[in-house]
């Protein structure tokens, strides 16, 4: 187990190195080079030369890459060109908001997706199945940001059930401990703050959950159908096991393996979806940082978000591989 983890971690290294090389090359291929990109309208030949010298861009390319790598490894991604603050600190501050949102979205997707997929598979060809399949197909085809606006217009503006944007109401006085608003409320026993934060979370989390939900339902359905047709399920049924036992011990357990892979892959979708959802709900998380970085061409920030996003994605998928060993005892790591 430990050896497997170590081996996989070592395998991650070349991937990340190559990614860093790509990101490095990406910054170099900016129109006019990074210096003129950073300076924007204020760029004059003298200033560009000056900045190139300060940034070390007049050095040989290998030296530059070495330095870049050294800085990245020590967590120094430079300062945001928008705020002038260290990029990593900015990301640290915005992270709890996005994690809170993504976790709730993933919880919704998994908690609804697996039972729905199972139900559809059990009633294959029936009205429940057909409705579910059609629902998942439409769920994937709806642009996330449009769905966000729809939810907002209907449930927040029209019905007034949920707040339309932000993470907390202005009049709620919450103590900041961890940056996770819901958690902070629980820790400091300010339960009204927790509740308020939760009500802010509902709409964006639902919008963000749709695509992962649709994917999880489809994979669960296909996987359960696969297992239902297998010999050992027939055996289990014919030797008179209680239907509940067959369902939980035989069908579900075997069907969950592909589903867990899919859940890991959803993390990438959540990151991408967060960019769109956060913009709709003025969320102030990683997605907002990214959206601002795009419009204002903040390259240090973009670069850091790109590298860290890929790192998280790769690590989550490693965790998913580890979860195989728990779900399926035949998998030896």
């Amino acid at each position: 187990m430990l050896r497997f983890v170590l081996r996989r971690l070592v395998q991650v290294v070349p991937t990340l190195l190559l990614l860093s090389l790509l990101v490095f090359a990406w910054l170099r291929s900016l129109p006019g080079g990074p210096a003129s990109a950073f300076l924007g309208d204020r760029a004059t030949p003298e200033r560009i030369a000056e900045l190139n010298r300060v940034l070390g861009l007049d050095q040989p390319i290998f030296v530059q890459y070495g330095r870049f790598l050294g800085r990245v490894l020590t967590g120094d991604f430079g300062a945001s060109t928008i705020t002038g603050q260290p990029v990593l600190a900015e990301i640290g501050r915005a992270l709890p908001a996005t994690v809170e949102l993504s976790v709730l979205a993933l919880v919704i997707a998994v908690a609804l997706g697996i039972p729905l997929g199972y139900l559809a598979a059990q009633h294959r060809g029936g009205p429940v199945d057909i409705a579910t399949v059609i629902g998942t197909l439409i769920g994937v085809a709806v642009p996330v940001f449009f769905l966000g606006y729809l939810l907002k217009a209907f449930f927040a503006v029209e019905l007034g059930w949920f707040p339309p944007s932000g993470r907390l109401s202005i009049d709620v006085d919450a103590t900041n401990v961890t940056g996770f608003v819901v958690l902070d409320g629980l820790l400091t026993r300010e339960f009204d703050a927790s509740l308020d934060a939760l009500s802010h979370l509902v709409l964006p989390a639902v919008a963000l959950a749709t695509i992962p939900l649709a994917v999880i339902v489809r994979i669960t359905r296909a996987s359960v159908l696969d297992v239902l047709g297998s010999d050992f399920v027939r055996t289990a049924n014919s030797k008179g096991l209680a239907p509940g036992t067959v369902r939980s011990r035989h069908v579900l357990r075997n069907a969950l393996l592909p589903v867990s892979t899919t859940i890991g892959l959803q993390v990438g979708l959540l990151l991408a979806g967060a960019v769109l959802t956060e913009k709709v709900f003025v969320w102030g998380g990683i997605g907002t940082l990214l959206a601002d970085a795009i419009t204002l061409k903040d390259y240090p920030r973009l670069q850091a978000l790109l590298l860290l996003g890929a790192l998280v994605y790769v690590l989550v998928n490693l965790l998913v591989d580890l979860s195989y060993a728990i779900i399926d005892p035949r998998v030896r790591l």
């Binding site: 990438g268 991408a272 795009i294 061409k297 790109l306």
Partner: peptide
């Protein structure tokens, strides 16, 4: 490596160039 970057993030970084 390209697959390790979430798809929309990849598209964004290319378009932002």
């Amino acid at each position: 490596v390209l697959l390790a970057v979430p798809s929309l993030l990849l598209a964004i970084s290319v378009a932002a160039l």
